[in-house]
Nucleic acid binder design. Structure first.
Lengths: 135, 135
DNA sequence: TAATATTACGTATTACGTAAAGATT
DNA sequence: AATCTTTACGTAATACGTAATATTA
């Protein structure tokens, strides 16, 4: 049971159609079909009733769907929470740097750091224990 | 974010040690390490603080852990429910078969079917609309 | 030195896409 | 004929294990 298999499964359940699901998942339709078959093989039951018109959830499929959705949701929320946490890191960092070479590599580093941790106050020092200034 | 990465992540979180986690997951330790690094790369944050003694969850890791666990649990429960459902399919099936050839291929089919669906009553007919008997 | 995690790299697995074949309306 | 799914098969991506390289107690 792999993540992408669950994505494909959910898409087929939602659209009721392998081809449409494949388009939504941006994958070739036979590839999606293979992965659905593989998932069905692993759980030991057919998940869809394939008719010409549409792919309908079997009883096993209906039973499995909420679990698949909760997995996909948990994954998304996990990602989201960590992403949001980026902005919640707070504090101060005192950073010593040699004025002669700092301009060559510090700007890029500082820019990416401040994007990732806007809550952190960066303090760059020309030399230790003296003349600090906030960037 | 792949299923096995979440398994590895949960194992490291539980054992506090990459090597022990790798043994539990029956995978080489460098392979597990790679997958953890890959997961960290995807979510954009370190999930563990690596010290010599142990691997401790970072704030991001602590935030992510419950989601990972809920994913693994949902996967297990999905599998389990489908497995249990096998015994819940009920009904009757009327099956026509030619007595001359049925003995050669029916027994295996019937045996596996009854194992999978013990709640289904199989009725085999010697010839249509007459002399049915329950196997 | 011992115990740990990471990097390097070759191998084996596997998900993919294209093409062809079935199946059904 | 048209629409949809599965099968076949070669290719590309990737997870794996072994070995080597840090890193720190």
């Amino acid at each position: 049971m792999e993540m992408h298999q669950l994505r494909y499964f959910a898409a087929v359940a939602r659209t009721g159609n392998f081809s449409r699901a494949a388009r939504e998942c941006r994958v070739a339709q036979p590839s999606l079909s293979q992965q659905i078959l593989k998932l069905e093989d692993e759980v030991g039951e057919r998940l869809f009733e394939r008719t010409q018109r549409q792919a309908l959830l079997t009883p096993a499929g209906s039973l499995f769907l909420p679990h698949a959705l909760s997995i996909l949701e948990a994954a998304e929320r996990g990602r989201q929470e960590i992403r949001e946490m980026g902005g919640q890191v707070r504090g101060k960092i005192l950073l010593g740097a040699l004025p002669t070479i700092a301009p060559y590599f510090l700007p890029d580093i500082i820019r990416s750091f401040r994007t990732k941790y806007p809550g952190v106050e960066l303090i760059i020092m020309r030399r230790p224990r003296n003349n600090s200034f906030v960037v």
